[in-house]
Computed example of a mutant assay.
Amino acid sequence: MPTSAQKLSGVVPPLVTPLTPEYDVDTASLVRLLEHQLTGGVRGVFVLGTSGEGTFLTDEQRQTVLETVVSEVAGQVPVLAGAIDASTARVGAHVSAALKAGVDAIVATAPFYAATHPAEIERHFTRLASVAGEMPLYAYDIPPRIGGTKLPAAMMIELGRQGVLAGVKDSSGQETSLRRLVLDRADAGLDDFAIMTGSEVTVDSALSFGVDGVVPGLGNVDPAGYVRIFDAVAAGDLVAARAEQDRLFRLFDIVDIADRSRMGASSAALGAFKAALFLLGVIACPLTAYPSIPLDDDEISGIGDLLDRAGLR
């Protein structure tokens, strides 16, 4: 396993990609978003993932995001880059571009679109690790985005044992399998294999049973809140951790504000994160990338009410 970086832990939000009204990358807003995260105490940032609309951006836009973030972070925390595409060759090209930009780690899903066998998924990650070289490679376990494929715990543990994977971001929403993965890691003696949850609403419990950290989309909006949960659990104060998680659980209602009869769930959730950041003055425009449908003024106003309830304005 690559040893060039410390084990990933703590709060590592998957950053949104701010866009201008012309749908270009808004680098000024991206810089403000980074300042918002670093001030909040995060231990890393993850760009070009699901929240970052990485699969919706052109290669040129992706490169702009990578170069802007690496330059602005300037080594203060690790920068993880999503390398997500349908085939190993295409993902490998994204890995190479991220390496040139100077990121600290890669996060990749299994291949999708074509039906794949577990043996082919293993080949996929093994090939990507060879492209990444000494840079840590993390698996992104997100079944709804890749044709329903759930990465088997035994596969991830074995790839960790082989030094192919440095860890996993589990966004499956399956708490039982996540807990089993933590136990399997312990049985395998893979202390350096990082396990991060992608669930915004069960962070306190996941940390309590041994997960190393969280990659929360809602962390774009309130990174400091998630840092407080992490710190409280680390200090053994589970009452404080639960209270903060309960507040963020209520704030997560922003993803239900948009009218689902006129847009998809992804548009509603990501649009809510961007609208909240817009209302907080962090980004200049709440637009999401095509073909996502933007939130209307009434929906954005409703998100403002929830920000007020959460004590963020």
Rank of each mutant, 00 (worst) to 15 (best):
S4G: 15
K7G: 12
P13K: 05
T17P: 13
T17G: 10
T20M: 05
T20C: 10
E22C: 04
D24R: 14
Q37F: 07
V45G: 02
F46A: 02
V47P: 00
G52H: 07
G52L: 05
G52F: 10
L57A: 12
Q61F: 10
R62Q: 11
R62G: 08
V65F: 12
E67H: 13
T68R: 03
V69L: 02
G75Q: 03
Q76H: 13
V77M: 03
V77S: 04
P78L: 03
V79S: 08
A81N: 08
V91F: 03
G92L: 02
A97T: 07
A97S: 13
A98V: 00
L99H: 13
A110L: 00
A110R: 04
A110N: 13
P111E: 02
P118F: 05
A119N: 06
E120S: 08
I121A: 12
R123Q: 12
H124Q: 04
R127P: 00
A132M: 02
M135H: 13
P144M: 00
M156P: 09
I157K: 04
R161S: 12
V164C: 06
L165K: 09
A166L: 00
V168H: 11
K169Y: 08
S171G: 12
S172D: 04
S177F: 10
L178W: 11
L178E: 09
R179Q: 15
V182C: 12
D192P: 02
T197F: 06
S199M: 09
E200F: 03
S205C: 01
S205N: 05
S208D: 09
F209R: 01
G213K: 04
V215M: 13
P216G: 10
P216I: 03
G219M: 02
N220E: 07
A224K: 12
A224Q: 12
A232S: 15
A234E: 12
A234C: 02
A234D: 09
D237Y: 12
L238S: 10
L248M: 13
D253K: 13
I254K: 09
D259Q: 07
R262W: 01
S266K: 00
S267T: 11
S267V: 00
A269V: 00
L270F: 15
F273Y: 15
L277D: 05
L277H: 08
F278H: 15
L280F: 07
V282S: 04
A289P: 01
P294S: 05
L295H: 09
E299N: 04
S301L: 00
D308R: 13
G311Q: 06
G311L: 05
R313T: 14
